[in-house]
Nucleic acid binder design. Structure first.
Lengths: 232, 232
DNA sequence: GGAATAGTGTCTTTAAGACAGTATTCC
DNA sequence: GGAATACTGTCTTAAAGACACTATTCC
């Protein structure tokens, strides 16, 4: 029904929060940024970072603000994941949470929040029962990331500003949990127009023959996609 | 920052609404269900159907309730589209709206809401400047529908319970605004495992040789996808 | 030279794009 | 029979999957 008259009973007050699923690849594992709760409810449990949306800011702006506060880095990829609005998801009051997915390269170390809660990168495979419905949100975020690697250039968001093809391949292997044929992967990603931009320089940080360094290109969509199950 | 203490200033009151992008294919056009507003602001302007989320129901449940109220039909495909939370999107107060995308077959006639507002199917190509930020939401919904036709079985949600391959092809052509090669399309959709389920019956409602009637199959994902640009 | 990693080339297979041709209905 | 639509088959081309081979570094 279209509500055409506003009266107090029409808009019961809700609190609106943002929750962040911040993912990175470090030590050959897909990791999420988690904070340990210092207060009830769920005191001592891991939770997604997040916070209340202020009246003067947009929901998207609140997410961007929280992301900078938590990581200490700006310019990371950030996109809306979904909104979670079960009546009893917070035991104290009615809270609707807008979840966001952010991708980060291997950052030096998590920045502690302005409050005392400790933050840490936790491999998603080792995460168990987060506070509130955050396990569901994290699962949705991981699945979104896995799916978008197929048809977008999102994988490069896990890499530093300059990276090798092998580093990008490692991202795909870790996020998807598969092993890919290095040669076919190389042909594929160097063949997609606008995905990688050669820097002209190279690095031998991986031991063998020096690998060419690339930057993210302008392309954001992969046509055709890089389907899960490429190579071995 | 992780808010560990709740105080009144932490959760300024928001109103939470759901808005519905309900799409259908009728008369060879992609149409959206719109309502005409009977009250200020935007009085007389077209808007998306929607309403307030009640304290006792989940956000998803509110969307499902509104969808049944507006269409008179249950069981339609419904998925979250995104959340729109600019501070001034509603001129009167702070409203955060969770938008949903619903797909419907060609329904007999829109059911008028419980209030006086008139509802109507409007071709999306003819929609101009809706109330609030609803034009943006509608655009996002249409784009989501177009994208998901590629890699999911969503196209069949626009069709009645039993439909022919030509009817499904017409859905793709209208939603994408392209013309597809009937023969390649037939090969593709009948070849995808689990997409279509033969009924054994046929219909000659289209003039020529009777066409086989199919039901939606169990498959929800198209592997490999049906890429935009198939055929001519 | 040997180990390790980077990068190229080639063959096979899958599936899309184009389009000829046959089948079954209504008039 | 003719028009219309449904369906099948064939040829060509693009791109994935598998894998041999060469290139450049460090030890």
């Amino acid at each position: 029904m279209l509500c055409v008259v506003y009266s107090p009973s029409d808009f019961p007050p809700f609190a609106v929060t943002v929750d962040l699923v911040v993912l990175t690849v470090r030590a050959d594992a897909l990791c999420a940024l988690l904070v340990r709760r210092g207060e009830a409810p769920f005191r001592g449990r891991w939770a997604l970072p997040g916070g209340f949306v202020q009246v003067t800011e947009s929901v998207d702006a609140a997410a961007a603000r929280e992301l900078v506060e938590e990581t200490g880095v700006s310019g990371l990829h950030l996109e809306q994941l979904g909104t979670y609005g079960e009546p009893r998801r917070d035991p104290r009051m009615r809270v609707v949470s807008v979840a966001y997915l952010a991708l980060a390269p291997d950052l030096p170390v998590p920045v502690a929040g302005t409050d005392a809660a400790a933050a840490s990168w936790v491999p998603v495979a080792e995460v168990s029962s987060l506070a509130f419905d955050h396990s569901v949100i994290l699962g949705d975020g991981v699945e979104r990331a896995r799916a978008k690697l197929e048809y977008t250039s999102l994988g490069t968001e896990f890499c530093p500003a300059e990276f090798t093809v092998a580093e990008l391949r490692r991202v795909y292997e870790v996020v998807w949990g598969v092993s890919l044929d290095a040669r076919n992967f190389h042909r594929k990603v160097t063949g997609v127009e606008g995905l990688l931009e050669a820097t002209g320089r190279s690095t031998s940080r991986d031991g063998g023959r020096p690998a060419a360094l690339y930057r993210r290109g302008a392309a954001s969509v992969l046509h055709p996609p890089l389907v899960r199950g490429v190579g071995a």
